[in-house]
Design a protein around this nucleic acid. Sequence first.
DNA 1: TATAAATGATACCATATTAGTATCATTTTG
DNA 2: CAAAATGATACTAATATGGTATCATTTATA
Lengths: 146, 146
Amino acid sequence: MKLITRDTDYAVRALCYIAGHKKEKVCVSAIVKELKIPRPFLRKIFQALNKKGILKSYKGKGGGFELAQPPENIFLIDLIEVFQGPLKINECMFKNNVCPSIALCPLNKKITEIEKDVSAQLSGISIYSLVKKGGFIYGKKKNNKN
Amino acid sequence: MKLITRDTDYAVRALCYIAGHKKEKVCVSAIVKELKIPRPFLRKIFQALNKKGILKSYKGKGGGFELAQPPENIFLIDLIEVFQGPLKINECMFKNNVCPSIALCPLNKKITEIEKDVSAQLSGISIYSLVKKGGFIYGKKKNNKN
DNA sequence: TATAAATGATACCATATTAGTATCATTTTG
DNA sequence: CAAAATGATACTAATATGGTATCATTTATA
């Protein structure tokens, strides 16, 4: 059972990478080289993040991406919601007319509590909080010939 | 994003149903009728629960299933693990040799904490705790001709 | 102004997971 | 022996996941 899928995963890593290159635009090719993410997949991911206002893109030669928001304001929960839709632990247990009432259902109540907890915790993990501790510092570009 | 899949869902409901019929064996057909779960699917689910020692089966005419353990001892986490494998929120973020070390990775650390929280909460929800509150009392069999 | 290097848009494809179905064998009661 | 139950197992359909592929557009710069 996965809470985080591959695209969310890659997005987190790539955003951390960009966050480590503060003043620079970073192009997909550079990240692909460094993080070994399949290039077209990362392009798709970045286009989504761009549309959602998490990345800002620059087209044309010398273009690339930068964070559209400070890394303190980009949270894991946001990325999960971009790629996996809204956090919703259970959505099918109560649809039939079998359970007397979703409002009264004790399971639904408990699951909803867990959901809120998880959501709160995921909302506390920012890109900044991941980068500052050092685990995701990927080193600056060396001699990039592409 | 789902934490609970359909089979786990059905299993919970069916076990609650059985728990409401304490002294009786309950056959698949009866549950199917009451809960509107697809019959062959529920059969598959019950065979899995039987193998895991959560249900006890009686073959032959007049046979059926009963709980192999008291409902106080059957927890949501157990059912999730039967049908969805072990709770593991993230398993792919750290496999490559990109991240310096999984032990140092701040994201892994935080995700692991969330994982433990969720697991603890799911371990606190027993079939009994769902049945006793009344939300899952499905009423006894009426005149069952199958 | 042509070309190279970047992203934008979009459609497609392969694999895995989820949600079942179908069938035949076996057991048990009557 | 027949009916009614589960056991075992294989198959199938739909959806989600993890990508590819292609062409269009923009921009810097030689």
